[in-house]
């Protein structure tokens, strides 16, 4: 089931990812990665983010498990990112994900965000997202 979901998401992504790199707002675009409590337990994650000139908005995991991102902020003085959202883990259990990360390799077409997350239950771990670039 998980493989099917990922395949569906990947297919969907193929239709929604612009066929060019993104040189505008550093967070805008589609980001692909994972999160989890340790290296052996990871949950697939897609974030689609946009910038309207005043606020960053976005959603997580497009498809049947899609959820809006509640809060997204970027501090461009150090390119730190805060993400507050509810996502479903690999067992489709909702998790209140509070992430703090940093954009790495800012100038690259495939820049990435790495950081840590925690939830309301005291769980925590790491996450990593990579900006997807077209051909």
């Amino acid at each position: 089931m998980k493989k099917y979901t990922i395949a569906t998401l990947a297919l969907l992504l193929g239709f929604t990812t612009p066929a060019f790199a993104q040189q505008g707002h550093p967070l805008a675009g589609t980001w692909l990665g994972d999160w989890g409590p340790d290296a052996s337990t990871r949950h697939f994650l897609i974030l689609i983010m946009d910038w309207d000139g005043q606020a960053i908005t976005g959603s997580a995991n497009p498809g049947p498990d899609a959820t809006p991102i509640d809060t997204l902020t970027l501090d461009s003085s150090d390119w730190s990112v805060n993400i507050d959202m509810t996502v479903k883990d690999s067992q489709s259990q909702p998790v209140h994900f509070k992430g703090e990360g940093t954009i790495n390799d800012l100038g690259s077409q495939t820049r990435n965000i790495t950081g840590t997350w925690s939830d309301d239950e005291g769980h925590n771990g790491s996450f990593r997202l990579e900006r997807q670039s077209g051909p």
Binding site: A21, Q23, G24, D52
Partner: peptide, 17 residues
Amino acid sequence: FNEGFWFSNGGLPHTKQ
């Protein structure tokens, strides 16, 4: 415009707006 390019020498950014 798309956001796939630098619209000026020097690297001034732009957006799809």
